[in-house]
Design a protein around this nucleic acid. Sequence first.
DNA 1: CCCGGTGAATAACTTATATTAGGAGCAGCG
DNA 2: CGCTGCTCCTAATATAAGTTATTCACCGGG
Lengths: 251, 251
Amino acid sequence: MPATALRAEGRQSGRSSALVTKLESVARLTLEDRSALAALSDGSREMGARRNVIREGERPDFVHLMVEGWAARYKLLADGTRQITAFLIPGDFCDLHVTILGEMDHSITTLTRAKVAFIPRSKMDSLTERPGLVKAFWWATLVDEAVLRAWIVNVGRRDAYEAIGHLMCELYVRMKNIGLTDDHCFELPLTQEELGDALGLTPVHVNRVLQRLRAENLISFKGGLLTIRDYRALEEASGFNANYLHITGRT
Amino acid sequence: MPATALRAEGRQSGRSSALVTKLESVARLTLEDRSALAALSDGSREMGARRNVIREGERPDFVHLMVEGWAARYKLLADGTRQITAFLIPGDFCDLHVTILGEMDHSITTLTRAKVAFIPRSKMDSLTERPGLVKAFWWATLVDEAVLRAWIVNVGRRDAYEAIGHLMCELYVRMKNIGLTDDHCFELPLTQEELGDALGLTPVHVNRVLQRLRAENLISFKGGLLTIRDYRALEEASGFNANYLHITGRT
DNA sequence: CCCGGTGAATAACTTATATTAGGAGCAGCG
DNA sequence: CGCTGCTCCTAATATAAGTTATTCACCGGG
């Protein structure tokens, strides 16, 4: 498979930003809207893998936007276990409008090397004066909420096999929506432990399930690269239905 | 315990609506804001227990607001199991701004007899022209999101005992915030099966855990009425921390 | 007053997943 | 080069929770 095509960090450079790509799939943006969004990435900072973007208890002055790389939203429990509640990929806001709530009730860490934009509140305010963007931002938060609900279903009612399959389907659709897939292959830079932290499973159980998914020829997953060998079958096996992602355009 | 005081459907009548009480705990509302909110309850409809408010796939014309009684947000799986992703109590919007997304990706049902306001979109639009209310509504959706994250942690990383305790603490704080508790007692009109559907457990296991919580004198729960006998201990046992509810005023 | 329905309580048994532990492969690094 | 530290993989055992089934208590209706 064409691994290198996906790996390259600059795959999107030259094209529009992931955020623009994502929002254009549901909202009609003006030229000015688009360049205003693109400008957000300008002052973005490079961060190493596994660095804190924000921590629980902090009161961020900025809204953070993923420009490149992956991050995860998580909560730490008293006994040291961790629950990941969201994976953040390029084009995702980490904490849109969180200034309203005051302090963070969870933490965010990068998973890979990443580019994160730190957007001052004043800049956000000027953006939300554009009616088209307000609506697009609303759409984004509502979809985030829908993803959370699907996550609950995953952890609550699906067994490990279905849950892992479901998560992979979701991430595939989201990555495809920002142009970061190549056929049915995309970068999934998660360790088995991180997958477990997302789904409430132990790494050893994740391992067993991955083997089964491979044995059944549904996926191949190695070196941070996931290929869904039989997307239909994986959807079927995991009960995935993309409707909750509310992507209207291309599927 | 003073059951009757809580049971009365009109407990709040004469006072301000649950929505006003809830939003006032975080935002300063003008007199007009308050009366505009109160007016929302005017055209509310009575509904029986276990009736659909909205179903997956529908495209609602209205925003629904819980005025009295309980409801639940849920998803149905192919194998017939159900996962509840939220409990809705008075003052909660069922689907704020959902008109943006198009069709519903989940369903909502009443759990008890309830009063639900059906608010036309135009009315919502006029409300959100008031800056104070926009911010208050934002706060409400952000808290809803935080509740979803806590729910994921509950289902993913806590065992049944902790999860049930945690849910009870959360519901206690939320009910208290809208003035529907009496000391540490409040109406919790959930069957053991519904509790199970919320936490991904079977009713028989929920039963076992409830017995244990009773045996340890942490709660008493009978006839839809929950009394938290030792709130501190329950918080401690379940790892509950109310910070994610972002209630600034009274605790 | 009995009847049917629903929710709660048990019990016996099964199963999915956790726990603990150890080894193998590979990458970065002094 | 040979460390050191991750991931990944595997196995043995333990346990929380599921499954199925039965009984009991309560409540409203005819």
